[in-house]
């Protein structure tokens, strides 16, 4: 038994895709938002709050002993300082390296070259962190390729130490974090109207002046977002400094890890993590405070 549906052939039936119809269901957008939000809430926020709670509660109840320990034992503040310093150096160096690359990506017109450069930038993402780090130990050691090359071409008389010191950590971490910087910069630079630079040149600005006065200030949003991304990620680095760094390059995450899985002192681990968390928030707040009046950032699009 088939039911016949009669349609008036003169009335055109408006065809609506099912996906479009879905968006008409009231409240669906909110529901879609709810899923990732719940994910973040339960798996990230709650677990982190739970973890931080350990820093002020132990078997005896509320206590500040773990947090005060951060300040009475100088090692924690020292390591924090080292961590901030290394993250800052890595941020500056990746910015210096990434800026020309991102600029080139925007400037190059040939699609082939563009994807080639982009590929080169993204390759580090495809290789395991451990493999990359070990590869660096091979390259950087005293008998490694870099030192041998520099000696053979006569730049160096004897090998320079590139491994197990700050240089090693910075090289390794910059390599890992560079793509984030390039992508952040590229995203913003892509959006900069090249005609602005042309306009400046038309008014009499030499190309480098037009770049400094027009392009660079407009790319600052990318500089800021890329730097924050790299800096904040750099604060939590663990494997790279442990393998490429020397004893004075201990990062704070190493201390956290040691307390979590070696000495099982989770209260102390939580206190260190809290310290790192607060310092990171402070860094972010300070940078926003200083940049709050930048007209480029005010731009709402």
């Amino acid at each position: 038994m088939a039911t016949e549906v009669k349609t008036d052939p003169r009335v055109p039936v408006k065809r609506v895709s099912p996906a479009y119809r879905l968006t008409r269901i009231p409240g669906l957008q909110w529901l879609l938002l709810l899923v990732p939000f719940a994910y973040i809430l339960f798996l990230v926020v709650f677990s982190i709050i739970g973890f931080f709670k350990l820093s002020i509660y132990d078997e005896t109840g509320f206590t500040l002993q773990y947090l005060t320990h951060m300040f009475t034992e100088t090692v924690y503040l020292q390591v924090l300082w080292v961590t901030l310093k290394i993250a800052a150096i890595v941020t500056v160096i990746s910015l210096l390296l990434a800026y020309p690359v991102a600029y080139l990506l925007v400037k190059v017109e040939s699609k082939k070259w563009k994807s080639l450069i982009m590929g080169a930038v993204l390759i580090p993402f495809w290789i395991s962190l451990l493999v990359r780090t070990f590869a660096w130990t091979m390259l950087l050691q005293e008998q490694g390729i870099i030192n041998k090359l520099l000696i053979s071409v006569g730049i160096l008389q004897e090998p320079i130490p590139l491994l197990y010191n700050t240089a090693g950590v910075v090289i390794g971490m910059t390599h890992v974090l560079l793509p984030y910087m390039v992508l952040s910069l590229y995203a913003v630079m892509e959006g900069i109207d090249q005609r602005l630079v042309q306009a400046a040149q038309g008014m009499g600005a030499r190309p480098w002046k037009a770049f400094i006065q027009i392009f660079f200030p407009l790319s600052l949003t990318g500089v800021l977002s890329g730097s924050l991304l790299v800096f904040v990620q750099g604060l939590g680095y663990f494997i790279t400094p442990a393998l490429l760094g020397g004893p004075d390059n201990m990062m704070i995450s190493v201390l956290i890890q040691r307390n979590v899985s070696e000495t099982l002192n989770w209260h102390l681990a939580s206190a260190i993590a809290l310290l790192l968390f607060i310092v990171t928030l402070l860094v972010l707040l300070i940078s926003f405070f200083f940049l709050r009046n930048n007209p480029v950032l005010k731009e709402v699009e």
């Binding site: 973040i40 990230v44 926020v45 677990s47 982190i48 973890f51 977002s225 924050l228 991304l229 904040v232 990620q233 604060l235 939590g236 663990f238 995450s253 956290i256 890890q257 979590v260 899985s261 681990a269 993590a273 790192l276 968390f277 990171t280 928030l281 972010l284």
Partner: peptide
Amino acid sequence: KKWIMISISLLLSLSLVACGN
């Protein structure tokens, strides 16, 4: 939203640290 991005990356980096190996 920049602050969302930052807090997410912060949370992730912290959770990576916290979760360990």
